[in-house]
Design a protein around this nucleic acid. Structure first.
Lengths: 146, 146
DNA sequence: TATTGTTATACTCTATAACTATA
DNA sequence: TATAGTTATAGAGTATAACAATA
């Protein structure tokens, strides 16, 4: 009684995961407009908060995006006062990005927005299924993103 | 022991769902290049196969995209011989999109690509968790997309 | 006048490539 | 010469608005 051969991609987990995730991303993005953030900015803040990063290059690798995009994301966040760039004295080519207190508060606000989505969206799921979903996401997310 | 207040959006289901889903969509898109399709084309084919649709407008509503995008998607699929447009004789403004045999075979190929991703991706999940994930996706996907 | 499909246009996102400063 | 960061440019994707045909 495992998965039978599905008739369409809608019968697969990966396709439905893509559909739902893309919709989720768009919804979160819409809810972030008041904070003047996009999900990618939030991802960058998360990495800084949870890992820290030695350089923008490392950040690009961790986020899985081009280094040039990190520049734009960091520019925007710096403009919001959420972080500042500090030159590495040992290698002046490098800049470390450091969260400010305002950045931490911004991240907290973004967290609350996501938590609200959770309440709206997983409200319909039984507790066991919600936990299983959360576990599955943990396992499937590429380690670099965690 | 329910969900404690998460410290970052990474602690929420919705944010991780967005990250994973967007990555999934990109991966599926990359695997579809040989078929000359994008996930949105596949979604359109799925809707035609599973529901049928009376008009392109209805399709736009079901897919949650702008009508002008349905035109482009259908143009491409028509160019591949996957469907043809037939004018509704009762209302000549409307065009019904009908899957051809080639379209059905194309959808089967796209299904196999997604099934292969499933094998690669959910391979690491215990059966119970996989089933729970599949169930959760079913419940969370907006009904229009199913 | 309202609706379907289409076309034209513009905007967002992000990558690639070129460039600067530092090593 | 190689690397970190930046800037310039280009392409993909998709929405909005204008338009044509039909009702």
């Amino acid at each position: 009684m495992a998965t039978e051969k599905p008739a369409t991609p809608m019968g697969t987990v990966s396709f439905r995961l893509g559909l739902l995730g893309v919709a989720q991303d768009a919804l979160y993005s819409a809810r972030l407009t008041d904070l003047d953030l996009k999900p990618k900015h939030v991802a960058l803040l998360c990495v800084l908060r949870l890992h820290g990063a030695e350089s923008q290059m490392e950040l690009a690798r961790l986020l899985g995006v081009a280094p040039s995009l990190v520049v734009l994301l960091a520019d925007h966040l710096e403009g919001l006062g959420a972080l500042h760039r500090v030159r590495d004295p040992a290698d002046r080519r490098r800049q470390s990005l450091r969260l400010t207190d305002a950045g931490l508060r911004l991240l907290e606000s973004a967290t609350e927005v996501a938590a609200q989505l959770d309440r709206e969206i997983v409200a319909g799921l039984p507790a066991a299924e919600r936990a299983a979903l959360s576990n599955a996401l943990d396992r499937l997310l590429p380690p670099r993103a965690r």
